[in-house]
Lab assay of single mutants.
Amino acid sequence: MAAGGDHGSPDSYRSPLASRYASPEMCFVFSDRYKFRTWRQLWLWLAEAEQTLGLPITDEQIQEMKSNLENIDFKMAAEEEKRLRHDVMAHVHTFGHCCPKAAGIIHLGATSCYVGDNTDLIILRNALDLLLPKLARVISRLADFAKERASLPTLGFTHFQPAQLTTVGKRCCLWIQDLCMDLQNLKRVRDDLRFRGVKGTTGTQASFLQLFEGDDHKVEQLDKMVTEKAGFKRAFIITGQTYTRKVDIEVLSVLASLGASVHKICTDIRLLANLKEMEEPFEKQQIGSSAMPYKRNPMRSERCCSLARHLMTLVMDPLQTASVQWFERTLDDSANRRICLAEAFLTADTILNTLQNISEGLVVYPKVIERRIRQELPFMATENIIMAMVKAGGSRQDCHEKIRVLSQQAASVVKQEGGDNDLIERIQVDAYFSPIHSQLDHLLDPSSFTGRASQQVQRFLEEEVYPLLKPYESVMKVKAELCL
C-alpha cells in the first residue's frame, strides 16, 4: 500500500493539533497551500530580480507567473513527485505547466533550498508574528487579574506546605514575570531571523556568478533584492546548502521555554482548584465526569500541561538535527523538520489560546482563602504575639514557653481530632496574655502579614508589564474561544 493518505478522510490519521486544537490561522501558515504558494512567490521574486539585473526574462513571463501564483494543481504535483521522487522539481514542473512561456526560467540558477529553506524562514517569521500578540493578550488578562487582587491576602506555599502570606495578585505576578520573559525572547528570536537568500547549491553562489558572467556586484544585488522582497532586513552571508540548523534550535528553545512557563502556571491553577481557592472557567453544560456528576475538573489547565510537556520535548529534535548536518548538509534534517517545526508552533498556539481562555474567566473564592488563612495564621502570628507581650512588660522566655504549650495543644486538636485551630481562643482565655487581649485582632490582621506584596504588584505592572504590552494595544480586544 502506498504511503500517505487522504487526510480529510475519517479513515486516515490526522494530527489532533490540526484537527482538534490549533487555530485556523496557525494551521494555514503550515498548510501545503501556504507552503507551495510561497515557493511560487519566491520563484517570481527571483525572476523579477534577475530581470532587473539584466537576464533575458520578459515582462510577459513575469506576468504569467504572477497570474498563476494561486493556480496550484495539487493532484498534478503529487503525481509528479511520485514520478520524480523530488518535491521541488515536482512543483517546478507543475508551475511550468500553467506558465508555459515562463517554464524555462522558473528556478533559474537556484537549488531546492532556495524555495525550501527560504519558505521555512518566512513561515517561522509569520508563525512567530501570530504567537506574539496571543502571548501579549494572556499577559494582559493576567495583569488585569493581578491588579484587581493585588491586596487580597492568601496563604503562600513553599514545598506545598503553608508559608508566609502573600497576595493573590502577587502570586499571579510570578506567572506574568515568566511570560514577559517569554514574550521578550519570542520577539528577540523573531527579529534575529535572517533570510537564507540566493546562495546556490553549497552556499557559494557559483551558479549565479556564472549567470551574471562573473559580476560579483550583481550577485550581491540579486541576494539583497530577493531578501528585501521577502520582507527581511538581512540575509546570511555564510550558508551551506541550507541555512544553519542552529536557527531551528533557537526558535524551538524559546517555544519550549514558553511551554515550561505555561505548565507551571496551569499546575498552580490545578492545585488551587483542589484547594477550592480558584477555578478555571466551567461552562453551564460542561460535564466533569461521566460517573461523578459533582466533579469540576480543571480540564483546560490539564490540557495545557499535557501539550506543554510535548512542546518542551520537541527542542531535542533540532538539537540532534543540527549535530548531524555533515559538511554542507545531509538530508537527516528533512523529514524531522517537516514534523517538529509545525508541531512546535501548533502546540504553542494551542496552549496560548487555551491559557487566554482560562485567564479571561478565572474565578476566585475569597471566603475559602480566608478560612485557610484562619487555619494557619495563628501559628504564624506567634512571633508577633511574643513581641507584643514583651512590649507590655512580659518575659520573652516565659511567653515563648506559654505559646509553645498552647500551640501544641491547638495542633493536637487540628491533627488528632480534625478540629479547627483554636490557638487564639486559648490565648484569649489565658490570664497571662490579658495585657494584649485587646491587640489580638490587630495582630491577626492578614494584611499585616503580606509585606509589600501589593506595592510590588503595582510597581511591576507599571514599570515592566504595561510598557512591554504597549506595541500590542491594537490587538488586545480579541477574545479566545474554545470549541473543545
Rank of each mutant, 00 (worst) to 15 (best):
E220V: 11
S434H: 09
R14G: 15
L272D: 04
F460Q: 02
L362D: 04
F232P: 01
G451M: 01
N185L: 07
R137Y: 05
W39R: 00
T227H: 13
L121W: 00
M26E: 01
R426P: 00
L179D: 06
Y365V: 08
D129E: 11
L128E: 07
W39V: 10
G116M: 06
A235H: 12
M89Q: 03
C180A: 11
T52W: 08
P378Y: 04
E401T: 09
I176E: 06
E463M: 07
I339Y: 04
I385S: 04
E60M: 12
F282P: 00
E383P: 03
L186H: 11
A291M: 02
A47E: 00
S323E: 04
Q408D: 11
S112K: 03
I339R: 03
G156A: 12
E283K: 14
S447P: 13
R426I: 04
L482Y: 07
R371F: 02
K35D: 02
Q428R: 13
R149Y: 09
S31A: 08
I403S: 05
G116Y: 01
A273V: 07
F433S: 06
L255G: 04
F157A: 11
A381G: 05
H97E: 12
R83F: 15
T166C: 10
A348I: 11
F208Y: 07
M278N: 03
G197D: 04
L155G: 02
R33T: 10
N71P: 12
E25F: 05
F449K: 10
Q428F: 12
V226P: 02
H263G: 08
D117G: 05
S448R: 15
Q61C: 12
G259A: 14
L124C: 13
C180N: 11
E277F: 04
H107I: 03
G240L: 01
R309A: 06
F36R: 08
C399N: 07
P281V: 10
R245G: 01
I385N: 04
R37I: 14
P435S: 11
L183W: 08
P133W: 15
Y21R: 00
K35L: 11
A480R: 14
D430V: 06
G259I: 00
K187G: 13
S31W: 02
E343H: 12
S447F: 10
D32P: 15
Q221A: 14
L17N: 10
A410R: 04
T244I: 03
R137I: 14
K199H: 00
A103I: 11
A206V: 07
F160H: 06
A103G: 11
A410P: 02
I373S: 04
Y365A: 11
W43H: 15
K477L: 14
L355C: 12
T201Y: 00
I106H: 01
F236A: 07
R309H: 14
D117C: 11
V254Q: 09
F433K: 03
D317N: 11
R337A: 02
Q458L: 13
K391G: 15
G169L: 01
G214Y: 12
R296F: 08
V92T: 13
R20S: 00
H400N: 03
A3I: 15
Q458V: 14
N297P: 03
V92Q: 00
F282E: 07
H400P: 02
T204L: 04
C172V: 14
D73R: 07
R329A: 01
T201G: 08
M389N: 05
E213H: 15
I238Y: 00
S290F: 02
D144N: 14
Q439W: 06
E370C: 08
L355K: 04
C399T: 15
I339M: 11
D317Q: 09
A150Q: 12
R303N: 04
S412Y: 15
F449S: 04
Y432E: 10
A150R: 12
E25A: 14
G8W: 15
G4A: 15
L331H: 00
K170R: 14
F95H: 08
S67F: 10
C483A: 14
Q205K: 02
L341M: 12
P56C: 09
D223W: 00
A18H: 12
I287E: 02
K276C: 05
L444A: 03
T111Y: 01
S253C: 14
V405A: 15
Q375A: 08
V475Y: 08
E79W: 13
K35P: 02
T354K: 04
G5R: 07
L307C: 15
S290C: 04
T244R: 01
V429G: 15
L132C: 15
N384Q: 12
E277S: 04
G169Q: 03
F236M: 10
E481K: 14
L258K: 06
L69G: 07
P435T: 07
I106C: 07
A230Q: 02
S448E: 15
F74E: 14
G54T: 05
K101N: 10
S438L: 09
F195S: 06
Q161D: 00
E70D: 15
A381V: 12
D317L: 06
W43S: 03
G259C: 05
L352T: 06
I369N: 09
I237K: 10
L341K: 13
R83L: 12
D129I: 14
R83A: 13
Q241G: 01
S306C: 03
E228R: 12
K276N: 06
S289E: 02
P293G: 07
M181Y: 11
L152A: 06
R190Q: 10
D430G: 06
M316Q: 13
D32F: 11
Q161L: 02
S257Y: 08
S257W: 08
T167A: 01
L152I: 10
D11L: 11
A235W: 13
I424A: 15
Y114P: 01
A102C: 11
Q285L: 13
L352P: 01
T242E: 07
R303G: 02
S301E: 06
E417T: 08
R171I: 00
E70T: 15
F30S: 01
L155P: 03
H107S: 01
E213L: 15
Y294W: 04
E79Y: 15
W39H: 09
R329D: 01
M292Y: 01
P100M: 09
M389F: 08
N384F: 05
I373N: 06
V247P: 02
G156N: 02
V315E: 05
L42V: 14
V115E: 06
L311C: 01
V364T: 05
